[in-house]
C-alpha cells in the first residue's frame, strides 16, 4: 500500500517540481543548448586522455602482468610434472633394486639350506653305518652265546640222560645212542 501511495505522491510531486523548474529556468537544464559545446569539449578532453592512457599504458601493463603470470604458472606446472616423472623413475629404480635384493637373499638362503641338508644327511649316514656295525657285532656275539648255551644245555642233557640210563639199566649207553635219543626227543 505504502509503496503505491509513495509512488503516486512522487509522481505528483515530480510533475509539480518539473513544472516549477521549467518555470524557473525556462526548461530542462539538459535542453539548454548553450551548455552543450562546453560539455562536449570537456567530454572529448577527459575521454580522450583516458583512452590514450588506457590504450598506451595501463591496459598493456595489466595485460602483461596477467600474461606473465599465466606463462609462469604454465612453466611451473611443466616443471612440477617433470619432477614428478623423475620421482616416479626413482621409485621404480628403488623397487627394482629392492626386488633384486630380495631375490638374491632368497637364492643365498636356498643354497645354504641345501648345503646344510647335505651335511646333515652325510653325518646321519655316517652315524647310521657306525650304529649298524655295532649292532651287527652285538648280534654276532648274542648268536655265539646262544650257540654256546645250547651246546652246554645239550651236553648237560646228554650227561643227565646217560646218568639216568646207567641208574636204570646199569649199563652205560654209547654216545651215539644218547645223541639219537635226544634228537628223537627234540623232534
Amino acid at each position: 500500500m505504502s509503496v503505491f501511495a509513495l509512488a503516486t505522491m512522487a509522481a505528483a510531486a515530480a510533475e509539480e517540481a518539473a513544472h516549477d523548474a521549467a518555470e524557473a529556468s525556462g526548461g530542462l537544464p539538459q535542453l539548454d543548448m548553450s551548455t552543450w559545446p562546453s560539455q562536449l569539449f570537456w567530454l572529448a578532453v577527459t575521454f580522450g586522455i583516458l583512452y590514450w592512457l588506457m590504450a598506451g599504458r595501463f591496459l598493456p601493463a595489466i595485460g602483461g602482468a596477467i600474461e606473465e603470470r599465466r606463462d609462469r604458472i604454465a612453466d611451473d606446472l611443466d616443471q612440477a610434472s617433470d619432477f614428478k616423472r623423475q620421482a616416479d623413475d626413482a621409485e621404480d629404480a628403488y623397487n627394482q633394486s629392492l626386488a633384486d635384493a630380495k631375490a638374491k637373499a632368497q637364492g643365498i638362503a636356498a643354497d645354504t639350506r641345501t648345503e646344510v641338508d647335505a651335511e646333515i644327511a652325510e653325518m646321519q649316514a655316517e652315524t647310521d653305518a657306525k650304529l649298524q656295525s655295532k649292532l651287527d657285532a652285538a648280534e654276532a656275539r648274542i648268536n655265539d652265546m646262544k650257540k654256546e648255551a645250547t651246546a652246554k644245555v645239550d651236553e648237560a642233557a646228554a650227561d643227565a640222560t646217560r646218568a639216568i640210563v646207567e641208574r636204570l639199566i646199569d649199563e652205560a649207553p654209547t654216545d651215539d645212542a644218547v645223541a639219537r635219543a635226544m634228537t628223537n626227543v627234540a623232534r
Partner: peptide, 14 residues
C-alpha cells in the same frame, strides 16, 4: 567563438 567554460559538469568529468 565557442564557449568551453569550465562548468560543474566539466569539473566532475575531471
Amino acid at each position: 567563438s565557442i564557449d568551453i567554460s569550465l562548468t560543474n559538469s566539466a569539473l566532475w568529468m575531471l
